[in-house]
Design a protein around this nucleic acid. Sequence first.
DNA 1: TCCAATACGGATATCGTTTATCCTTATTGG
DNA 2: CCAATAAGGATAAACGATATCCGTATTGGA
Lengths: 162, 162
Amino acid sequence: MILKSQVEWALHCCAILAGLPDGRYLSTKALAEFHGLPKEYLSKALQSLSQARLVDSTLGPSGGYRLSRPPAEITFLDVVEAVEGKERSFVCNNIRANNPCRPEGYCDAGPCAIARIMWDADEAWRASLRAVTLAMLVQSLEKDVPPALWRESFEWVMKRVG
Amino acid sequence: MILKSQVEWALHCCAILAGLPDGRYLSTKALAEFHGLPKEYLSKALQSLSQARLVDSTLGPSGGYRLSRPPAEITFLDVVEAVEGKERSFVCNNIRANNPCRPEGYCDAGPCAIARIMWDADEAWRASLRAVTLAMLVQSLEKDVPPALWRESFEWVMKRVG
DNA sequence: TCCAATACGGATATCGTTTATCCTTATTGG
DNA sequence: CCAATAAGGATAAACGATATCCGTATTGGA
Ligand code: SF4
Ligand code: SF4
């Protein structure tokens, strides 16, 4: 049970987009180059963010992506679910329906204890991700990253914004 | 990011084993038949439980599996990790190492904020699973399952224990 | 007006994991 | 000694993740 690498890519891209000046766009090409990722495939992750309405996009030269809301209003869960899907990690295959002792039509009775417990854990995971916003991420990153690198990265990006 | 169906299988099997009289064994064949699962493949899941020391096994006719500890001392997390592995769901591919602005050797500086946040969520998931024991599962199931089916299933199993 | 750069989406190929089956070996109760 | 079992290796099918390619529509700038 491993998250796709697109999750990491999307989070990194959102961190960059969260640092952009208001209203500016950054292209897939710049994001791919900055992270050393295959442009065409990263594009799929960004399209997922776009379909989830987390980012706006424009076409044409100087086109690209920007966050559709303030970073404080986008959570990790929003991003993760955009690329990974909203399905729960535990899927119930209803194997109790194969119980040789069961009466006919018994298994219509809703999810059992096993499913409920697994889904509770899934919800705990989601709650944890829901509690962190992109604004908080940028704050943390700014503390981690050496000031010189932080500044140079910002300038690198600013040379390429639309 | 979907858990393997072996997780569900293993949990169901543990629920059965938790209801066995002290010291009795139940075979893969019986467990597979009860749940309508392919015997050979279910066997792999049970072997995982065995390697994780959650169950004991014996060979020969009337051989099979039993819990190696009281149900109150085996958690959902034990079972899930036995078949799914202990690796965290978010793997960091260190893409910040590709940052064109980074100084040489920068990325040795440990996990960044993104990884920490994702790993915190993973730990919240594990903590939730760690809080539920097989004893609690059996209690819940006994409430859910109609008494007649519960009794018949128990008798079905008892006809096959070693 | 035209061109180049871009987002978007469909088609396809590659790769690894999950799922599943088969077979051999060692062990053990009857 | 025999039959039933756990254990584990080898292998294949099915599926999803990864990755690339191309065609279309849109748009800013020359
Ligand atoms: S509902 Fe519960 S008992 Fe039924 S198949 Fe799903 S996990 Fe198993
Ligand atoms: S440590 Fe953080 S910044 Fe570096 S690659 Fe992993 S997730 Fe990305």
